[in-house]
Design a protein around this nucleic acid. Structure first.
Length: 134
DNA sequence: ATCTTGACTTGCC
DNA sequence: CGGCAAGCCAAGA
């Protein structure tokens, strides 16, 4: 009967986790691909996060996920201007170099959110290590 | 089964 | 700080 391994009527666990985490990022805050991957339990899965958002981004606040340097990686796929507009509309400011001020806008999940998302505490706090100038 | 690609990161000059 | 190479890993060809 189930000769096939039921490929994906439901979401891959990692994908589901990524979407859940991205949905938890508040308006006006951002996270990097690597940070989302870390919180989702795959410390080297940044590229996967990008691919997941490419496929399913319209179902989540995809604009709040940017690259490690505060830059927008979506110019590569043509939605860069849209992403910037969405972010600015929710209060995110860009420097003259066109990057997000991470010091100001990087999301740090509250203790409540950490518990609600079942994030391992040490991992939840490790996202701060990936800040420029830290 | 390979090989290439890429909404990424890190490390080394 | 900037450029570049090397890792990374799943999808698509």
């Amino acid at each position: 009967m189930p000769s096939k391994p039921n490929v994906n009527h439901s979401l891959n666990p990692f994908t589901a986790r990524v979407l859940e985490i991205v949905r938890a990022i508040p308006r006006g805050k951002v996270l990097s691909y690597g940070q989302v991957a870390l919180l989702a339990g795959a410390p080297r899965g940044a590229r996967q996060v990008g691919r997941i958002l490419y496929a399913r981004g319209r179902t989540v606040p995809w604009q709040r996920v940017i690259n490690r340097y505060g830059g927008l990686s979506t110019y590569k796929v043509g939605t860069g201007a849209e992403q910037r507009a969405l972010l600015e509309k929710e209060g995110v400011t860009f420097t003259q170099d066109g990057v997000v001020n991470l010091k100001k806008h990087q999301w740090r999940p509250s203790a409540h959110t950490i518990e609600k998302l079942h994030l391992p505490e040490e991992i939840a706090f490790e996202i701060n290590r990936k800040l420029p100038f830290s």
